[in-house]
């Protein structure tokens, strides 16, 4: 398990964050909004890995990208070290960018194909003017390449000459160039081979131990998220439906959606894997343009009640767990 968490030191605090996109088609069509992230709140402590799971289209990547301000938030606040960055722009924002970095999913698309590895890793240093001479930068690049397990003489090569895992390590080296306090990992291993996934996960853990970095780890591969995360949040249709200690959520998921999601994970064991009972979800993910009233999951939920359609369940604490579900609420009252 990764490093110690300092619980009283909050690195990132997201409060009632909403990111809506305009999806109006044509000039005179009715105005439509995609509620990609709809009222999400959580905080991440220093040295912690916070896992965010959910299926494609649930808004997890949009949430990550809103936090680093690739997308502008519609409402709510994003506090980094106690300072709200939701509304800031320009140079003020640039100084915050140093602290918060992003690892993209596709190592084939996230490195500029026309730059050498050296140029790619130097770019953030140049943007923020951390080093004065080329020699200092070269030395730092070599050091970073060694940190991620590549050779310093790879510096003059181009990204397309590397394998997927090697490229992902290059992009990790780039994010580390600015000594960030917080890194968002957006499915960093889903495009990689199994044997390489473990390398990247171990590398991320090792970096966390050495540098005390916090991660927001976005993924759909639940077994890896469980391994690396201290706490996880389950997202469905733009909302967090369950949040808790990763081990507890896995062994005893409370929200019906978490239960279905976890039961679907294939077990790498020939006997248990073939016997495993799965909860099959009915129907399909509703469109985020026109989400169901009340609880977003009610259209597919085996326990849906009348109340679920009328009002939206709020996140409630059950021990160390937060769940947004009326059924859980009733059972625990």
């Amino acid at each position: 398990m990764p490093a110690n968490i300092v619980k009283d030191e909050v690195v990132l605090k997201v409060d009632h964050l909403k990111t809506y996109f305009d999806a109006t088609k044509g000039l005179f069509a009715k105005k439509q909004t995609v509620k990609a992230v709809d009222d999400v709140s959580f905080e991440i402590y220093k040295g912690e890995t916070f896992g965010l799971v959910g299926e494609s289209g649930c808004g997890k990547s949009t949430l990550g990208r809103t936090i680093v301000k690739i997308y502008e938030p519609t409402a709510g606040s994003i506090e980094i070290n106690g300072r709200d960055i939701a509304g800031i722009k320009g140079d003020e924002l640039k100084s915050f960018r140093k602290d918060i970095q992003y690892i993209f999913q596709d190592p084939y698309a996230s490195l500029d194909p026309r730059m050498t590895v050296g140029e790619i890793i130097k770019e953030p240093m140049k943007i923020h003017g951390i080093y004065k001479t080329e020699e200092e930068m070269d030395a730092r690049v070599s050091q970073l390449l060694r940190t991620v397990g590549l050779k310093p003489d790879h510096i003059r090569r181009y990204p397309h000459e590397f394998s997927g895992g090697q490229r992902q390590r290059i992009s990790i080296a780039r994010t580390l160039a600015l000594d960030p306090k917080f890194i968002i990992c957006d499915e960093p291993i889903s495009a990689l081979d199994v044997s390489i996934q473990a390398q990247i996960i171990n590398l991320l853990e090792q970096i966390q131990r050495e540098l005390d970095i916090s991660y927001l780890f976005i993924a759909h591969d639940l077994s890896m998220v469980k391994h690396i995360s201290h706490r996880i949040a389950v997202m469905y249709l733009g909302q967090i439906v369950e949040l808790g200690e990763s081990h507890e959520v896995y062994t005893n998921p409370m929200h019906p959606y978490s239960q279905a999601l976890l039961s679907a994970v294939p077990v790498p064991d020939p006997v248990k894997g073939k016997e495993k009972e799965r909860i099959m979800l009915q129907g399909e993910l509703p469109s985020p343009i026109d989400p169901p009233s009340g609880c977003p999951f009610r259209t597919r939920c085996p326990y849906a009640m009348e109340r679920c359609a009328g009002e939206r369940p709020q996140m409630k604490m059950y021990g160390s767990r937060q769940v947004a579900c009326f059924k859980v609420e009733e059972e625990n009252s």
Binding site: V194, Q197, I201, K226, H227, L262, D269, K272
Partner: peptide, 24 residues
């Protein structure tokens, strides 16, 4: 053996991942 050591069985408790070093 290496492949099996570097995957996670979500039903088992935490074991350390043992990655296979290097690239294919």
């Amino acid at each position: 053996k290496g492949l099996l050591a570097c995957i996670k069985n979500p039903e088992e408790n935490d074991k350390d991942l043992v990655p296979i070093p290097g690239s294919p």
